[in-house]
Every structure is written in C-alpha cells, then in structure tokens.
Design a protein around this nucleic acid. Structure first.
Length: 271
DNA sequence: CCGGACGCCTGTCGGC
DNA sequence: TGCCGACAGGCGTCCG
C-alpha cells in the first residue's frame, strides 16, 4: 500500500480539485471494500461542499459541511482526478463526481480500502481514536519513543510499525529508516538506548520527508493523482534488495521475516 | 495488557 | 507453455 508518503502525495495532488468544490454525485460500482460502503451514502453527500481535505495517519478525511468522509487506500488503492465521462476500468469502484465535470476515482484491485461516513468528529471514530502521534509532528520525538519502548518486548521494527505507537511508518519505510539509523530491525526494543531512539526518530523523519518529495514509492499499483508513478523506489537503500550490495559497506543485504512482514537490512551496518 | 497469527482480496512472479 | 504456491505497500480481530 500506500504508506504515509503515498497518501500525503495523493492528498496534495487531489486537494486543488476538491477543496471548496461541491459534490455533484457519488457513484458506487462496488460496495464490498474492507467494510461495505454505507447504504445511502450517495444521498448523504450529494450536493455537499468539500471544505477541506486532511490526512490523519493513512486516512484521508474529506471534511464536508454535513460530516466527514473517511477514505483509506488499503494495500492497492489509488485515487485519480479524471473527466467524469472517462469510462471506468476494472477495479474502479468509486467516483466522487464534482461540479465542473471532474471526478475523483478510486481504483483498488484488492479491495482492502474503505469509504466510511462520520457525521460528527472523525477524531472520535473507533478507527482513528487510538492512533499514536503523526510521524512528522513535533510530539513524535526521541524521549517519547524511548518511553513507549520501555514496556514492550517486540522487535524494534514491529514497534515503529505499530499505529498505536506512531502512525505512517509502513513496511518499506520501516526497513529504510532502520538502515539509516544503523539499528537491526529485530533488536528487542527495550535494548535500545534513548540516544539511538532519538536518531531513529530523525531517520524516520528524513526518509518520509524525502519520499514525499519524490512523490512516494511505486512498486506496482501506486499512482500519484496525475497518474505518474512515485520515484522514491529509485532511492530505496535496502527494501526489496536482498543479495544486493549494501550502499554503505558493500556487504549483501539480507532478507528476513519479522512479524509476518518481509524485512531487509545490512547485517554489517545494523546492530 | 501484550504479542503473534490469521484473514480479507486480486494480481503477479518464480519455480518446476 | 502451464500450473501452483508464495507473496505483495494494511490493519482489525481473535486467541493464548
């Protein structure tokens, strides 16, 4: 999926087409996403104005004057803005038709994405309520991460991918951040010093910021709002590069499953 | 409370 | 060439 950089890239790409615009119609071709698209949602949002497009974790929040649409891209979702008359293709499940002839179209082959309706404050929604701090915000810092880690015994990679700890660090960027910080992904999180956590926070920020600047990472499905791929795939140091030389020391990159997710690291540079 | 495993789906890729 | 299993960017839920 889209991790945080892909969702943020998408948000920035589609925001100009949405903010301040009125919704002419919602067309649902396939209701069976991660959760069913609520019955009657079409009537609920028709005619409403999009006040703002925000992001919390990997959720996009479309603030309407009458409530909030919560959109998630799952593993394979992408959003594009197209002329509303463009014929939908396979796996194009939703169109949010806007005044002026454009529509926002969701494509999601695996259907792990979601479109939900929240009539009141989305922060209180069960899916958003228990999320940790944003990874690029000031309240995600070294002392916070060290303190959270103290009570846990999972590998550090699982820790930073736990959305209750910090949001937005998915499988690709967890491996990349740990490489940059020189920390072995499987190291027990209680056996890492506060100083190294501070460094890890810096690495996460650096990796995510660079990835956003490159338009995210396209491995297969992901597309920016204009249809172009994300170019951060060219900057990946370890993810997907098992056997290739470490860009820092030349030793072969290792692959291993940690917490049911494939993980990549340099056995020489990361401890 | 925590941590680990599973399942949701479809598409693709590598090995035989 | 064809088939089959493994795996894929997430994450809620269940179980011990």
């Amino acid at each position: 999926m889209p991790e945080l950089p892909e969702v943020e890239t998408t948000r920035r790409g589609i925001a100009p087409y949405l903010e301040g615009k009125r919704i002419a119609a919602l067309r649902v071709r396939e209701r069976r996403l991660r959760w069913p698209v609520p019955e009657g949602l079409e009537a609920q949002v028709a005619g409403a104005r999009v006040q703002a497009l925000e992001r919390r974790a990997k959720y996009l929040l479309l603030r309407l004057d009458c409530g909030t649409l919560i959109l998630h891209l799952g593993m394979s979702g992408s959003l594009r803005v197209l002329p509303a008359t463009d014929p939908p293709q396979r796996h194009d499940h939703l169109d949010l038709v806007l005044e002026g002839g454009y529509c926002l179209r969701l494509r999601d082959p695996r259907r792990f994405g979601a479109l939900l309706w929240c009539p009141d404050s989305p922060e209180a929604h069960p899916l958003l309520r228990d999320l940790g701090p944003e990874s690029l915000s000031a309240d995600f810092d070294g002392p916070y991460l060290a303190q959270v880690a103290a009570g846990r015994r999972v590998p550090v990679k699982s820790l930073i991918m736990d959305s209750g700890v910090v949001v937005g660090v998915g499988n690709i960027y967890a491996s990349e951040s740990l490489f940059l910080a020189g920390i072995h992904p499987q190291r027990a999180c209680r056996r890492i010093s506060a100083a190294r956590y501070a460094r890890l926070v810096g690495s996460i920020r650096q990796v995510l910021t660079a990835a956003i600047q490159q338009g995210g990472t396209t491995l297969r499905d992901f597309r920016q709002a204009d249809g172009s791929p994300g170019y951060f795939a060219l900057s990946l140091r370890v993810y997907g590069r098992a056997g290739a030389p470490c860009p820092r020391c030349g030793a072969p990159i290792q692959a291993r499953r940690i917490g049911q997710r494939s993980s990549f690291f340099c056995p020489h540079c990361q401890h």
